[in-house]
Write a protein that binds this DNA or RNA. Structure first.
Lengths: 253, 253
DNA sequence: CAGTGGTCTAGACCACACC
DNA sequence: GTGTGGTCTAGACCACTGG
Protein backbone atom coordinates (compact mmCIF):
# COMPACT_ATOMS: atom_id res chain seq x y z
CA UNK A 1 0.00 0.00 0.00
CA UNK A 2 2.54 2.66 -0.98
CA UNK A 3 1.60 6.16 -2.08
CA UNK A 4 5.02 7.36 -3.12
CA UNK A 5 3.88 8.27 -6.61
CA UNK A 6 4.22 11.96 -7.40
CA UNK A 7 1.59 12.34 -10.09
CA UNK A 8 2.44 13.90 -13.39
CA UNK A 9 -1.23 14.72 -13.72
CA UNK A 10 -2.32 16.77 -10.72
CA UNK A 11 -4.85 14.20 -9.61
CA UNK A 12 -6.15 15.15 -6.18
CA UNK A 13 -4.59 13.16 -3.38
CA UNK A 14 -7.88 12.03 -1.97
CA UNK A 15 -8.94 10.70 -5.37
CA UNK A 16 -5.75 8.77 -5.80
CA UNK A 17 -6.15 7.47 -2.27
CA UNK A 18 -9.67 6.37 -3.04
CA UNK A 19 -8.34 4.31 -5.94
CA UNK A 20 -5.54 2.78 -3.92
CA UNK A 21 -7.86 1.91 -1.06
CA UNK A 22 -10.45 0.57 -3.44
CA UNK A 23 -7.93 -1.82 -4.91
CA UNK A 24 -6.74 -2.80 -1.47
CA UNK A 25 -10.32 -3.58 -0.50
CA UNK A 26 -10.64 -5.90 -3.45
CA UNK A 27 -7.43 -7.75 -2.88
CA UNK A 28 -6.54 -7.61 0.78
CA UNK A 29 -9.78 -7.39 2.70
CA UNK A 30 -12.94 -9.39 2.97
CA UNK A 31 -16.48 -8.33 3.78
CA UNK A 32 -17.01 -7.37 7.39
CA UNK A 33 -13.33 -6.98 8.09
CA UNK A 34 -12.38 -3.96 10.13
CA UNK A 35 -9.89 -1.44 8.76
CA UNK A 36 -7.14 0.32 10.70
CA UNK A 37 -8.41 3.50 12.31
CA UNK A 38 -8.32 6.80 10.46
CA UNK A 39 -5.33 8.22 12.30
CA UNK A 40 -3.22 5.18 11.53
CA UNK A 41 -4.31 5.05 7.92
CA UNK A 42 -3.58 8.74 7.44
CA UNK A 43 -0.11 8.31 8.91
CA UNK A 44 0.53 5.24 6.79
CA UNK A 45 -0.28 7.16 3.60
CA UNK A 46 1.43 10.32 4.74
CA UNK A 47 -1.61 12.56 4.48
CA UNK A 48 -3.67 14.58 6.89
CA UNK A 49 -6.58 12.85 8.48
CA UNK A 50 -9.02 15.15 6.70
CA UNK A 51 -7.67 14.03 3.34
CA UNK A 52 -7.90 10.39 4.28
CA UNK A 53 -11.45 11.00 5.41
CA UNK A 54 -12.32 12.51 2.05
CA UNK A 55 -11.27 9.28 0.40
CA UNK A 56 -13.21 7.17 2.90
CA UNK A 57 -16.28 9.31 2.31
CA UNK A 58 -16.13 8.53 -1.39
CA UNK A 59 -15.85 4.83 -0.73
CA UNK A 60 -18.69 4.95 1.74
CA UNK A 61 -20.81 6.80 -0.82
CA UNK A 62 -20.07 4.00 -3.26
CA UNK A 63 -21.19 1.43 -0.76
CA UNK A 64 -17.76 -0.08 -0.28
CA UNK A 65 -17.26 0.90 3.36
CA UNK A 66 -19.35 1.30 6.43
CA UNK A 67 -18.30 3.64 9.18
CA UNK A 68 -19.75 3.71 12.67
CA UNK A 69 -18.81 6.21 15.33
CA UNK A 70 -17.21 4.66 18.34
CA UNK A 71 -16.72 1.38 16.51
CA UNK A 72 -14.65 1.66 13.38
CA UNK A 73 -14.64 1.30 9.62
CA UNK A 74 -15.60 -2.01 8.08
CA UNK A 75 -15.75 -3.43 4.59
CA UNK A 76 -19.36 -3.32 3.43
CA UNK A 77 -21.09 -6.25 1.74
CA UNK A 78 -22.32 -5.70 -1.83
CA UNK A 79 -25.41 -3.56 -1.96
CA UNK A 80 -28.64 -5.47 -1.58
CA UNK A 81 -31.16 -5.31 -4.38
CA UNK A 82 -34.39 -3.80 -3.11
CA UNK A 83 -37.34 -4.13 -5.40
CA UNK A 84 -39.33 -1.00 -6.00
CA UNK A 85 -42.28 -0.57 -8.29
CA UNK A 86 -42.83 -4.26 -8.67
CA UNK A 87 -46.35 -5.42 -8.08
CA UNK A 88 -47.30 -3.00 -10.80
CA UNK A 89 -50.93 -2.89 -9.82
CA UNK A 90 -50.97 -3.09 -6.07
CA UNK A 91 -51.71 -0.55 -3.41
CA UNK A 92 -49.38 -0.09 -0.50
CA UNK A 93 -50.31 -2.31 2.39
CA UNK A 94 -51.15 -5.33 0.25
CA UNK A 95 -50.55 -8.82 1.51
CA UNK A 96 -47.05 -9.35 0.12
CA UNK A 97 -45.95 -5.90 1.14
CA UNK A 98 -42.40 -5.46 2.44
CA UNK A 99 -43.41 -2.53 4.63
CA UNK A 100 -44.49 -2.32 8.21
CA UNK A 101 -46.93 0.35 9.30
CA UNK A 102 -45.76 2.37 12.26
CA UNK A 103 -48.09 5.25 12.85
CA UNK A 104 -50.85 7.34 11.37
CA UNK A 105 -52.13 10.86 11.88
CA UNK A 106 -54.65 13.12 10.20
CA UNK A 107 -53.28 16.53 9.32
CA UNK A 108 -53.49 19.37 6.86
CA UNK A 109 -51.05 18.65 4.04
CA UNK A 110 -47.82 20.63 3.94
CA UNK A 111 -47.62 22.92 0.95
CA UNK A 112 -45.12 20.88 -1.06
CA UNK A 113 -47.25 17.76 -0.68
CA UNK A 114 -50.53 19.47 -1.45
CA UNK A 115 -49.03 20.64 -4.71
CA UNK A 116 -48.23 17.11 -5.82
CA UNK A 117 -51.55 15.80 -4.59
CA UNK A 118 -53.26 17.83 -7.26
CA UNK A 119 -56.62 16.90 -5.84
CA UNK A 120 -58.08 18.56 -2.79
CA UNK A 121 -56.08 21.68 -2.03
CA UNK A 122 -57.17 22.22 1.51
CA UNK A 123 -58.32 18.70 2.15
CA UNK A 124 -56.88 16.93 5.20
CA UNK A 125 -54.64 13.93 4.55
CA UNK A 126 -53.92 10.79 6.48
CA UNK A 127 -50.19 10.54 7.04
CA UNK A 128 -48.99 6.98 7.43
CA UNK A 129 -45.46 6.27 8.53
CA UNK A 130 -43.97 2.96 7.51
CA UNK A 131 -40.59 1.35 7.66
CA UNK A 132 -38.98 -1.32 5.56
CA UNK A 133 -36.52 -3.90 6.75
CA UNK A 134 -34.49 -6.17 4.52
CA UNK A 135 -31.99 -8.79 5.55
CA UNK A 136 -32.26 -7.76 9.14
CA UNK A 137 -31.50 -4.12 8.73
CA UNK A 138 -33.64 -1.04 8.11
CA UNK A 139 -33.42 0.10 4.50
CA UNK A 140 -36.15 2.67 4.10
CA UNK A 141 -38.51 5.03 5.88
CA UNK A 142 -41.67 6.16 4.19
CA UNK A 143 -44.36 8.76 4.57
CA UNK A 144 -47.61 8.01 2.83
CA UNK A 145 -50.04 10.83 2.19
CA UNK A 146 -53.61 9.76 1.61
CA UNK A 147 -56.31 12.37 1.06
CA UNK A 148 -59.26 11.78 3.34
CA UNK A 149 -61.51 11.43 0.30
CA UNK A 150 -59.58 8.39 -0.87
CA UNK A 151 -60.74 6.42 2.16
CA UNK A 152 -64.25 7.77 2.85
CA UNK A 153 -65.49 4.79 4.87
CA UNK A 154 -63.02 5.18 7.65
CA UNK A 155 -65.53 6.45 10.18
CA UNK A 156 -66.13 2.90 11.38
CA UNK A 157 -62.58 2.71 12.65
CA UNK A 158 -62.24 4.04 16.14
CA UNK A 159 -58.48 3.89 16.74
CA UNK A 160 -57.45 7.55 16.62
CA UNK A 161 -53.85 6.91 15.69
CA UNK A 162 -51.08 4.36 15.94
CA UNK A 163 -50.14 1.32 13.88
CA UNK A 164 -53.62 -0.16 14.10
CA UNK A 165 -55.16 2.88 12.48
CA UNK A 166 -52.43 2.94 9.86
CA UNK A 167 -53.31 -0.59 8.86
CA UNK A 168 -56.97 0.31 8.79
CA UNK A 169 -56.35 3.21 6.43
CA UNK A 170 -54.34 1.01 4.11
CA UNK A 171 -57.00 -1.65 4.21
CA UNK A 172 -59.60 0.86 3.13
CA UNK A 173 -57.37 1.91 0.29
CA UNK A 174 -57.49 -1.54 -1.27
CA UNK A 175 -61.15 -0.97 -2.13
CA UNK A 176 -60.24 1.59 -4.76
CA UNK A 177 -59.26 0.41 -8.21
CA UNK A 178 -55.69 1.35 -8.93
CA UNK A 179 -55.13 2.71 -12.41
CA UNK A 180 -51.37 3.00 -12.39
CA UNK A 181 -48.54 4.49 -10.43
CA UNK A 182 -45.64 6.75 -11.29
CA UNK A 183 -42.22 6.55 -9.70
CA UNK A 184 -39.45 9.10 -9.47
CA UNK A 185 -36.02 8.66 -7.92
CA UNK A 186 -33.69 11.39 -6.79
CA UNK A 187 -30.80 11.92 -4.43
CA UNK A 188 -31.46 13.53 -1.08
CA UNK A 189 -30.08 13.74 2.40
CA UNK A 190 -31.74 12.16 5.39
CA UNK A 191 -33.72 14.42 7.68
CA UNK A 192 -33.14 13.93 11.37
CA UNK A 193 -36.17 11.66 11.92
CA UNK A 194 -35.51 9.50 8.88
CA UNK A 195 -31.82 9.27 9.72
CA UNK A 196 -32.68 7.93 13.15
CA UNK A 197 -34.96 5.30 11.73
CA UNK A 198 -32.34 4.29 9.17
CA UNK A 199 -29.62 4.12 11.80
CA UNK A 200 -27.60 6.83 10.07
CA UNK A 201 -26.52 10.36 10.87
CA UNK A 202 -28.57 13.32 9.66
CA UNK A 203 -27.52 14.31 6.18
CA UNK A 204 -26.65 10.80 5.13
CA UNK A 205 -27.24 10.28 1.41
CA UNK A 206 -30.56 8.67 0.59
CA UNK A 207 -32.45 7.75 -2.53
CA UNK A 208 -35.84 9.39 -2.39
CA UNK A 209 -38.51 7.45 -4.23
CA UNK A 210 -41.69 9.38 -4.86
CA UNK A 211 -44.66 7.34 -5.98
CA UNK A 212 -47.99 8.72 -7.08
CA UNK A 213 -50.84 6.24 -6.99
CA UNK A 214 -53.49 7.11 -9.55
CA UNK A 215 -57.10 5.96 -9.20
CA UNK A 216 -60.17 7.34 -10.92
CA UNK A 217 -57.98 9.87 -12.67
CA UNK A 218 -56.86 11.42 -9.41
CA UNK A 219 -53.82 11.05 -7.18
CA UNK A 220 -55.29 8.77 -4.53
CA UNK A 221 -52.10 8.41 -2.52
CA UNK A 222 -48.58 9.75 -2.50
CA UNK A 223 -45.61 7.89 -1.10
CA UNK A 224 -42.27 9.46 -0.29
CA UNK A 225 -39.80 6.77 0.64
CA UNK A 226 -36.19 7.41 1.60
CA UNK A 227 -33.81 4.50 1.05
CA UNK A 228 -30.31 4.21 2.44
CA UNK A 229 -28.14 5.02 -0.55
CA UNK A 230 -25.09 3.29 0.86
CA UNK A 231 -26.63 -0.14 1.27
CA UNK A 232 -29.38 -0.27 -1.35
CA UNK A 233 -29.64 -0.82 -5.06
CA UNK A 234 -33.18 -0.11 -6.19
CA UNK A 235 -34.53 -2.52 -8.77
CA UNK A 236 -37.44 -1.78 -11.06
CA UNK A 237 -39.44 -4.15 -13.18
CA UNK A 238 -38.61 -7.39 -11.41
CA UNK A 239 -35.40 -9.31 -10.81
CA UNK A 240 -34.78 -8.07 -7.30
CA UNK A 241 -32.16 -10.65 -6.54
CA UNK A 242 -29.53 -10.01 -9.18
CA UNK A 243 -26.13 -9.69 -7.65
CA UNK A 244 -23.75 -7.40 -9.47
CA UNK A 245 -20.33 -7.91 -8.06
CA UNK A 246 -18.25 -4.78 -8.42
CA UNK A 247 -14.77 -5.61 -9.54
CA UNK A 248 -11.51 -3.74 -9.06
CA UNK A 249 -12.43 -0.62 -11.02
CA UNK A 250 -16.19 -1.10 -11.09
CA UNK A 251 -17.35 -0.60 -14.64
CA UNK A 252 -13.78 -0.73 -15.89
CA UNK A 253 -13.48 0.24 -19.52
CA UNK B 1 -29.41 35.73 8.24
CA UNK B 2 -28.27 35.62 11.88
CA UNK B 3 -26.72 32.55 13.47
CA UNK B 4 -26.46 33.78 17.01
CA UNK B 5 -28.38 30.82 18.39
CA UNK B 6 -26.41 28.67 20.77
CA UNK B 7 -28.19 25.35 20.42
CA UNK B 8 -29.47 23.55 23.47
CA UNK B 9 -29.35 20.35 21.42
CA UNK B 10 -25.81 19.78 20.17
CA UNK B 11 -26.89 19.91 16.53
CA UNK B 12 -23.79 20.10 14.34
CA UNK B 13 -23.03 23.60 13.13
CA UNK B 14 -22.92 22.62 9.51
CA UNK B 15 -26.33 21.03 9.77
CA UNK B 16 -27.85 24.06 11.40
CA UNK B 17 -26.15 26.18 8.78
CA UNK B 18 -27.62 24.04 6.05
CA UNK B 19 -31.09 24.68 7.42
CA UNK B 20 -30.55 28.40 7.76
CA UNK B 21 -29.15 28.67 4.26
CA UNK B 22 -31.90 26.50 2.87
CA UNK B 23 -34.50 28.83 4.30
CA UNK B 24 -32.62 31.83 3.01
CA UNK B 25 -32.58 30.28 -0.45
CA UNK B 26 -36.34 29.92 -0.36
CA UNK B 27 -37.07 33.42 0.82
CA UNK B 28 -34.26 35.69 -0.25
CA UNK B 29 -32.83 34.27 -3.45
CA UNK B 30 -34.12 33.37 -6.86
CA UNK B 31 -32.96 30.74 -9.34
CA UNK B 32 -29.67 31.56 -10.99
CA UNK B 33 -28.76 34.19 -8.47
CA UNK B 34 -25.17 34.15 -7.33
CA UNK B 35 -24.36 33.82 -3.62
CA UNK B 36 -21.63 35.67 -1.72
CA UNK B 37 -18.33 33.80 -1.91
CA UNK B 38 -17.42 31.17 0.64
CA UNK B 39 -14.99 33.31 2.60
CA UNK B 40 -17.54 36.05 3.04
CA UNK B 41 -20.31 33.64 3.96
CA UNK B 42 -18.13 31.88 6.50
CA UNK B 43 -17.20 35.18 8.09
CA UNK B 44 -20.81 36.32 8.12
CA UNK B 45 -21.87 33.20 10.01
CA UNK B 46 -18.81 33.16 12.23
CA UNK B 47 -17.61 29.72 11.21
CA UNK B 48 -14.54 28.32 9.52
CA UNK B 49 -14.67 28.06 5.77
CA UNK B 50 -14.51 24.26 5.97
CA UNK B 51 -17.66 24.20 8.07
CA UNK B 52 -19.47 26.51 5.70
CA UNK B 53 -18.38 24.31 2.83
CA UNK B 54 -19.83 21.26 4.55
CA UNK B 55 -23.21 22.97 4.59
CA UNK B 56 -22.90 24.00 0.94
CA UNK B 57 -21.99 20.44 0.01
CA UNK B 58 -25.21 19.22 1.55
CA UNK B 59 -27.25 21.76 -0.34
CA UNK B 60 -25.48 20.93 -3.58
CA UNK B 61 -26.18 17.24 -2.98
CA UNK B 62 -29.82 18.12 -2.60
CA UNK B 63 -29.79 19.98 -5.87
CA UNK B 64 -30.34 23.38 -4.32
CA UNK B 65 -27.00 24.91 -5.25
CA UNK B 66 -24.58 24.74 -8.10
CA UNK B 67 -20.90 25.49 -7.54
CA UNK B 68 -18.37 26.13 -10.25
CA UNK B 69 -14.70 26.67 -9.65
CA UNK B 70 -13.48 30.06 -10.68
CA UNK B 71 -17.03 31.32 -11.01
CA UNK B 72 -19.07 31.07 -7.85
CA UNK B 73 -22.06 29.48 -6.20
CA UNK B 74 -25.47 29.91 -7.75
CA UNK B 75 -29.00 28.92 -6.84
CA UNK B 76 -29.92 25.84 -8.85
CA UNK B 77 -33.21 25.46 -10.68
CA UNK B 78 -35.51 22.62 -9.59
CA UNK B 79 -34.26 19.26 -10.77
CA UNK B 80 -35.42 18.27 -14.20
CA UNK B 81 -37.45 15.11 -14.59
CA UNK B 82 -35.62 12.69 -16.83
CA UNK B 83 -37.64 9.75 -18.02
CA UNK B 84 -36.00 6.37 -17.66
CA UNK B 85 -37.48 3.02 -18.47
CA UNK B 86 -40.34 4.48 -20.45
CA UNK B 87 -40.83 2.98 -23.88
CA UNK B 88 -41.20 -0.30 -22.05
CA UNK B 89 -40.56 -2.35 -25.13
CA UNK B 90 -37.97 -0.47 -27.09
CA UNK B 91 -34.31 -1.11 -27.72
CA UNK B 92 -31.78 1.62 -27.21
CA UNK B 93 -31.23 3.56 -30.41
CA UNK B 94 -34.90 3.63 -31.39
CA UNK B 95 -36.35 6.56 -33.25
CA UNK B 96 -37.58 8.57 -30.28
CA UNK B 97 -34.43 7.95 -28.32
CA UNK B 98 -33.05 10.75 -26.18
CA UNK B 99 -29.49 9.51 -26.59
CA UNK B 100 -26.77 10.36 -29.03
CA UNK B 101 -24.25 7.74 -30.06
CA UNK B 102 -20.66 8.86 -29.68
CA UNK B 103 -18.36 5.96 -30.28
CA UNK B 104 -18.11 2.20 -30.56
CA UNK B 105 -15.39 -0.37 -30.05
CA UNK B 106 -15.18 -4.14 -29.96
CA UNK B 107 -13.44 -5.50 -26.90
CA UNK B 108 -13.28 -8.37 -24.51
CA UNK B 109 -15.74 -7.65 -21.67
CA UNK B 110 -14.32 -6.59 -18.31
CA UNK B 111 -14.95 -9.14 -15.61
CA UNK B 112 -17.70 -7.26 -13.78
CA UNK B 113 -19.64 -6.83 -17.02
CA UNK B 114 -19.17 -10.37 -18.22
CA UNK B 115 -20.68 -11.55 -14.98
CA UNK B 116 -23.87 -9.60 -15.53
CA UNK B 117 -24.00 -10.56 -19.20
CA UNK B 118 -24.63 -14.13 -18.16
CA UNK B 119 -24.38 -15.23 -21.76
CA UNK B 120 -21.05 -15.67 -23.52
CA UNK B 121 -18.32 -15.67 -20.91
CA UNK B 122 -15.40 -15.02 -23.15
CA UNK B 123 -17.36 -13.58 -26.01
CA UNK B 124 -16.29 -10.15 -27.30
CA UNK B 125 -18.74 -7.28 -26.79
CA UNK B 126 -19.45 -4.14 -28.73
CA UNK B 127 -19.06 -1.17 -26.42
CA UNK B 128 -21.16 1.79 -27.44
CA UNK B 129 -20.71 5.13 -25.75
CA UNK B 130 -23.65 7.49 -25.77
CA UNK B 131 -24.51 10.77 -24.15
CA UNK B 132 -27.79 12.32 -23.23
CA UNK B 133 -28.58 16.00 -23.27
CA UNK B 134 -31.67 17.56 -21.79
CA UNK B 135 -32.63 21.20 -21.72
CA UNK B 136 -29.33 22.20 -23.20
CA UNK B 137 -27.10 20.50 -20.67
CA UNK B 138 -25.53 17.05 -20.46
CA UNK B 139 -27.38 14.85 -17.99
CA UNK B 140 -26.01 11.38 -18.53
CA UNK B 141 -23.20 9.31 -20.00
CA UNK B 142 -23.79 5.71 -20.93
CA UNK B 143 -21.85 2.63 -21.82
CA UNK B 144 -23.77 -0.03 -23.70
CA UNK B 145 -22.39 -3.55 -23.79
CA UNK B 146 -23.69 -5.68 -26.62
CA UNK B 147 -22.42 -9.24 -27.04
CA UNK B 148 -21.28 -9.85 -30.59
CA UNK B 149 -23.81 -12.65 -30.90
CA UNK B 150 -26.67 -10.21 -30.38
CA UNK B 151 -25.86 -8.49 -33.67
CA UNK B 152 -24.59 -11.29 -35.92
CA UNK B 153 -25.21 -9.53 -39.23
CA UNK B 154 -22.81 -6.73 -38.60
CA UNK B 155 -20.19 -7.94 -41.05
CA UNK B 156 -21.78 -5.85 -43.79
CA UNK B 157 -20.85 -2.70 -41.94
CA UNK B 158 -17.38 -1.51 -42.76
CA UNK B 159 -16.89 1.43 -40.42
CA UNK B 160 -14.42 0.07 -37.84
CA UNK B 161 -15.39 2.45 -35.06
CA UNK B 162 -16.83 5.88 -34.40
CA UNK B 163 -20.37 7.20 -34.17
CA UNK B 164 -21.38 5.74 -37.52
CA UNK B 165 -20.54 2.24 -36.41
CA UNK B 166 -22.29 2.82 -33.10
CA UNK B 167 -25.48 3.68 -34.93
CA UNK B 168 -25.06 0.63 -37.14
CA UNK B 169 -24.77 -1.65 -34.13
CA UNK B 170 -27.88 -0.17 -32.57
CA UNK B 171 -29.74 -0.49 -35.86
CA UNK B 172 -28.91 -4.18 -35.99
CA UNK B 173 -30.16 -4.57 -32.46
CA UNK B 174 -33.68 -3.50 -33.46
CA UNK B 175 -34.08 -6.74 -35.41
CA UNK B 176 -34.19 -8.78 -32.24
CA UNK B 177 -37.45 -9.11 -30.41
CA UNK B 178 -37.19 -7.53 -27.00
CA UNK B 179 -38.77 -9.55 -24.24
CA UNK B 180 -38.40 -7.14 -21.38
CA UNK B 181 -35.84 -5.07 -19.57
CA UNK B 182 -34.81 -4.72 -15.95
CA UNK B 183 -33.65 -1.52 -14.33
CA UNK B 184 -31.63 -0.91 -11.21
CA UNK B 185 -30.67 2.42 -9.67
CA UNK B 186 -27.89 3.06 -7.23
CA UNK B 187 -25.69 5.87 -6.02
CA UNK B 188 -22.18 6.14 -7.37
CA UNK B 189 -19.46 8.65 -7.98
CA UNK B 190 -18.42 9.80 -11.41
CA UNK B 191 -15.28 8.31 -12.87
CA UNK B 192 -12.89 10.75 -14.53
CA UNK B 193 -14.18 10.16 -18.06
CA UNK B 194 -17.84 10.34 -17.13
CA UNK B 195 -17.22 13.39 -15.00
CA UNK B 196 -15.68 15.20 -17.92
CA UNK B 197 -18.61 14.41 -20.14
CA UNK B 198 -21.06 15.52 -17.47
CA UNK B 199 -19.16 18.73 -16.86
CA UNK B 200 -18.48 17.82 -13.24
CA UNK B 201 -15.44 16.99 -11.14
CA UNK B 202 -14.38 13.38 -10.62
CA UNK B 203 -16.21 11.88 -7.68
CA UNK B 204 -19.34 13.91 -8.23
CA UNK B 205 -22.43 12.01 -7.08
CA UNK B 206 -24.26 10.24 -9.87
CA UNK B 207 -27.23 7.94 -10.16
CA UNK B 208 -26.13 4.79 -11.92
CA UNK B 209 -28.91 3.15 -13.89
CA UNK B 210 -28.18 -0.39 -14.97
CA UNK B 211 -30.51 -1.85 -17.57
CA UNK B 212 -30.51 -5.42 -18.77
CA UNK B 213 -32.26 -5.96 -22.08
CA UNK B 214 -33.63 -9.46 -22.35
CA UNK B 215 -34.31 -11.15 -25.67
CA UNK B 216 -34.76 -14.84 -26.40
CA UNK B 217 -34.21 -15.55 -22.74
CA UNK B 218 -30.72 -14.08 -22.78
CA UNK B 219 -29.23 -10.74 -21.84
CA UNK B 220 -28.91 -9.24 -25.30
CA UNK B 221 -27.56 -5.89 -24.15
CA UNK B 222 -26.48 -4.20 -20.96
CA UNK B 223 -26.62 -0.48 -20.37
CA UNK B 224 -24.81 1.34 -17.59
CA UNK B 225 -25.87 4.97 -17.53
CA UNK B 226 -24.60 7.55 -15.07
CA UNK B 227 -26.89 10.50 -14.46
CA UNK B 228 -25.92 13.73 -12.74
CA UNK B 229 -27.47 13.33 -9.31
CA UNK B 230 -27.51 17.05 -8.62
CA UNK B 231 -29.63 18.08 -11.57
CA UNK B 232 -31.73 15.02 -12.36
CA UNK B 233 -34.82 13.36 -11.00
CA UNK B 234 -35.30 10.01 -12.68
CA UNK B 235 -38.88 9.17 -13.55
CA UNK B 236 -40.14 5.67 -14.19
CA UNK B 237 -43.38 4.54 -15.72
CA UNK B 238 -44.37 7.69 -17.53
CA UNK B 239 -45.07 11.26 -16.41
CA UNK B 240 -41.65 12.65 -17.15
CA UNK B 241 -42.73 16.24 -16.89
CA UNK B 242 -44.05 16.44 -13.35
CA UNK B 243 -42.57 19.32 -11.48
CA UNK B 244 -42.23 18.84 -7.76
CA UNK B 245 -41.43 22.17 -6.23
CA UNK B 246 -39.46 21.75 -3.07
CA UNK B 247 -40.72 24.02 -0.35
CA UNK B 248 -38.98 25.43 2.70
CA UNK B 249 -38.27 22.15 4.44
CA UNK B 250 -38.81 19.79 1.51
CA UNK B 251 -41.04 17.00 2.67
CA UNK B 252 -41.91 18.95 5.77
CA UNK B 253 -43.87 16.90 8.26
C1' DC C 1 -4.51 40.03 -13.54
C1' DA C 2 -7.91 39.29 -9.35
C1' DG C 3 -11.46 36.39 -7.56
C1' DT C 4 -13.63 32.03 -7.18
C1' DG C 5 -14.15 27.31 -5.51
C1' DG C 6 -11.08 22.93 -4.68
C1' DT C 7 -7.51 20.74 -2.00
C1' DC C 8 -4.66 20.06 2.00
C1' DT C 9 -2.61 20.55 6.59
C1' DA C 10 -1.96 19.91 11.74
C1' DG C 11 -3.87 20.39 15.11
C1' DA C 12 -8.20 20.36 18.77
C1' DC C 13 -12.29 18.78 21.00
C1' DC C 14 -16.78 16.12 21.03
C1' DA C 15 -20.12 12.07 20.93
C1' DC C 16 -20.41 7.51 21.08
C1' DA C 17 -19.46 2.30 21.78
C1' DC C 18 -17.38 -1.02 24.36
C1' DC C 19 -14.90 -2.91 28.20
C1' DG D 1 -11.85 4.43 31.43
C1' DT D 2 -9.87 3.86 26.14
C1' DG D 3 -10.49 4.09 21.34
C1' DT D 4 -13.32 5.10 17.52
C1' DG D 5 -15.31 8.16 14.01
C1' DG D 6 -17.59 13.10 13.75
C1' DT D 7 -16.99 18.05 14.00
C1' DC D 8 -14.43 22.27 13.80
C1' DT D 9 -10.66 25.62 13.29
C1' DA D 10 -7.31 28.86 10.95
C1' DG D 11 -4.60 28.93 8.16
C1' DA D 12 -2.10 27.74 3.21
C1' DC D 13 -1.70 26.88 -1.62
C1' DC D 14 -3.66 25.23 -6.18
C1' DA D 15 -6.68 25.28 -10.44
C1' DC D 16 -9.74 27.53 -12.86
C1' DT D 17 -12.66 31.52 -14.91
C1' DG D 18 -13.15 35.82 -16.54
C1' DG D 19 -12.08 40.54 -17.46
Amino acid sequence: MGTTQLETVPEPKYWHLRTVLSEALDSEFSVGEILPNERDLAARFGVARATLRQALEQLELEGRLQRRRGVGTTVAPPRMGVSVGTAQHAWPGGSDDAWQAVDCTLVAPPAAIAETLVTGREEPVHTVRRSRVSQGQPVAAELLYIPASSVPDLSAIDAPSGAARARAVLRELQHLELERHENAVELGSARADDAKELDRLPGAPVLVVTTRFIALGRVAALSVATYRADTCRLTFGDSGGVQIHHGPERRAS
